[in-house]
Amino acid sequence: MRAMPHRVADPGAIIFGEPVLAVAGQTYAHGEPVESWDYATPFTVIMSVTVDRERFLESTGLSTLDGVVACVAVDCKVSGTRYVERLPLPASGAPADIRVHIGPHQVAQAVEVTPSVVLDSAEGLENPEMVAFRRGSRLISSTRSYRFPLEGSATLFPTEAFSFAAAGFPSGAAWKLNFDPDEIDDPYLGAVRLLINTDHPISGELLSGEPTLARSVLFHEVIAQMLLTVAGSFRTIPTEFEEDSVGAAMNHLAETYLGLSLAQAVDALGNDRAETLCRLQDRTAFMNVRATS
């Protein structure tokens, strides 16, 4: 929820439908792997918007819907691209579709879809009633983003297995976790990678997916390292996160394995790291195969 320097619409005055991604004659809901897409295939993101005209005008203080648009932004973080389409707010109360077309070879891995409502005219003046007057003013203060995974096994933990000795890593190590996000809103799956040393005698067990002692240690260590990385990298932890972001994933892990929000978990690690990691052992069934099987 953002605080705005102008009045915004009541939450119920604007309703966006759940977006779908249409490609090659098929449609996908957010979160669903878009299997029929490849680089050469264009696609369209479609999102509907419905307006309660009276409620919108009353809450924003605007006198007309003229010059107000619904926007849908499609962002691809890994290719650094953004596409924005806008549509004049439909005055009828019936839903209208906003369509964002993405051409071939423009995006990769995943796109995030974010709706907004914006003042697209600049005819007003600064006023004591705090009615928005600047072109571009956001007229809803809270929106969620929707993620569409385009490539890869979006639900699996990214893992690669190879010989550490040949790669110049310590040859006796069993694994290495690469996790060093720049921002708490970075896409989680792009920020983490588990490397398994195929020279290590335990590697087959680690890669097997079977509940074993070694995997319980790996599981605990991965979560501990990620929590400690977040605690050491970010001075402030927000309470809301973008979908499928580092923050959202870590918040989920903290709630599941420590019973704390991410912000609380970071505080706990700062106040009593030993106690917190001990609690993590308990909740991850550390070295307790029967509990995990």
Binding site: P104, H105, A166, R193
Partner: peptide, 23 residues
């Protein structure tokens, strides 16, 4: 824009090649 795709090294192959080049 080119639609010729660049050959990719896996992480393991890239790290092994990096070690060779460095050496």
């Amino acid at each position: 824009m080119s639609h010729t795709l660049i050959p990719r090294l896996t992480t393991g192959d890239a790290l092994a090649r990096f070690t060779l080049v460095e050496s």
